[in-house]
Amino acid sequence: MKKDNKPLGPSQRMLRVGELVRHALADIFARGEIEDEALAGSVVTVPEVRMTPDLKLANAYVMPLGGAHADEIVTVLNRHAKYIRGRIAPRINMKYAPEIRFFVDDTFDEASRIDALLRSDRVKRDLDHDGDDSDED
C-alpha cells in the first residue's frame, strides 16, 4: 500500500470488469461481428483488458494470431470502437459501457526477449561460475 492507503494495483472491481470486457471482445472477434476487409481471415486474441478506476475506459490489448499486421488490425479496431462498444454493452450488464481503446499486446515479444537473455552465453557462464563457487565450500 502507498502512504495514503490506496492500493498499488487495480482493484478487484477493475479486474472483474476488465475480465468481463475481455470475454465480450473475444466473443465478438470469434463470431466475426466486425465486418472489415482488414479483419477478414484474422484471428485476434485479447490477452488483457485494463480498466481505469472509474470504469469508463477500457484499454484492450490485442494480438492477431502469428502477430502479422498487428498495427493495422489495431487501427481497424480503433476505427470500429464505437460499434464494438455498442455490441459489448448488453453483454457486460453495466449501467454504462466503457469506451474502448485498442493497443498491440507486446507481452509476448517482451517474454521472448527475456527468454533469449536468460539463454544467452553470458548468463550461462555466470550460472556455471556460481555453481563452481558452491562446490568449493
Rank of each mutant, 00 (worst) to 15 (best):
Met1Pro: 03
Lys2Tyr: 05
Lys3Asp: 13
Asn5Ile: 07
Leu8Lys: 09
Gly9Pro: 00
Pro10Ala: 11
Ser11Ala: 10
Leu15His: 08
Glu19Phe: 06
Ala24Ser: 09
Ala26His: 01
Asp27Gln: 14
Ile28Glu: 06
Gly32Trp: 03
Gly32Ile: 02
Ile34Gln: 01
Leu39Thr: 07
Ala40Tyr: 06
Val43Asp: 01
Val43Arg: 13
Val44Tyr: 04
Thr45Ser: 15
Val46Phe: 01
Pro47His: 09
Thr52Cys: 00
Leu55Asn: 00
Leu55Phe: 01
Ala58Asp: 05
Tyr61Met: 06
Leu65Ala: 05
Gly67Phe: 02
Ala68Trp: 01
Ala68Ile: 04
Asp71Ala: 13
Thr75Trp: 05
Thr75Pro: 00
Leu77Thr: 07
Ala81Val: 03
Lys82Val: 12
Gly86Glu: 10
Arg87Leu: 15
Met94Trp: 00
Met94Thr: 07
Glu99Leu: 11
Phe102Ile: 11
Phe103Lys: 10
Phe103Thr: 07
Asp106Gly: 12
Asp106Phe: 03
Thr107Ala: 14
Glu110Met: 14
Ala111Trp: 02
Arg113Phe: 11
Arg113Thr: 12
Asp115Val: 05
Ala116Asn: 12
Arg119Pro: 00
Arg122Asn: 08
Asp128Ser: 14
His129Ser: 11
Asp130Thr: 10
Asp132Arg: 13
Asp132His: 05
Asp132Trp: 02
Asp133Gln: 12
Asp135Lys: 15
